[in-house]
């Protein structure tokens, strides 16, 4: 059966893979929750973690750059959920706004303007095996370090918007201003770097 023009092989295989792994996963987590082996928060956590990992893996492995960017948005949304679980609603909102609204749009615009989606589908460099090995060692080291340490701590309070505002403007006023300055500079810099030179535009 010929595939429709909008669907290429990658989308189909990706969707099928996600479905094959994702549905049983969701099922297992849900069943565990219903059986009372894990509580509600944990069910949500595992689902979010799965979502994040799917998004992250997609964003670094996808051969289609647009899919990679969209996968990043998926991961970012999952992370926003994690922030909710971590009792930082404000951060969750910021995450959604900045990543979902800002970064993703920027990336997509850049992809569009560089016609990167038209590039031949060789998105990974020649050092892929080495990179994979190094990253794997890095992940193993990090995870074993995280697992090795133990903390006896639980979430006690919810970080309210008011508290964040107080902390941010009272104690971190100067860094806040500096950050705004950085944003301004980045804005101006991006415009200055990306705009066409006058001669070029004249020639064009």
């Amino acid at each position: 059966m010929p595939l429709p023009a909008q669907l290429d092989r990658a989308i189909v295989t990706g969707s099928l893979t996600a479905g094959a792994i994702g549905l049983p996963y969701i099922l297992v987590v849900s069943v565990l929750g219903i059986m009372g082996r894990i509580n509600g928060a944990e069910v949500v956590w595992w689902l979010l973690a799965g979502l994040i990992l799917v998004g992250a893996i997609g964003s670094v492995t996808s051969n289609n750059v647009v899919h990679a960017a969209l996968s990043l948005v998926v991961a970012a949304m999952g992370i926003a959920g994690m922030f909710v679980l971590l009792a930082s609603e404000f951060l969750a909102l910021v995450q959604v706004l900045v990543y979902g609204g800002g970064v993703a749009i920027l990336l997509l615009f850049a992809l569009m303007m560089t016609n990167a989606s038209d590039d031949p589908i060789v998105v990974d460099g020649s050092q892929k095996p080495f990179g994979f090995g190094v990253a794997l060692v890095m992940g193993v080291v990090l995870v074993s370090a995280m697992v090795g340490a133990s903390w006896n701590a639980t979430i006690t309070t919810v970080v309210s918007f008011r508290d964040i505002g107080t902390r941010l403007y009272r104690d971190y006023g100067v860094p806040f201003e500096v950050a705004s300055l950085v944003l301004l500079v980045a804005l101006i810099g991006a415009i200055a770097i990306a705009r066409r030179d006058t001669e070029e535009s004249d020639a064009a």
Partner: peptide, 23 residues
Amino acid sequence: IPNYALAMAVGVVVLAVMAFRSA
């Protein structure tokens, strides 16, 4: 640049391993 990044990454990993082993 990817080659350089890889070299740097190897260094970081080695340092991480060393830090992890000594910790």
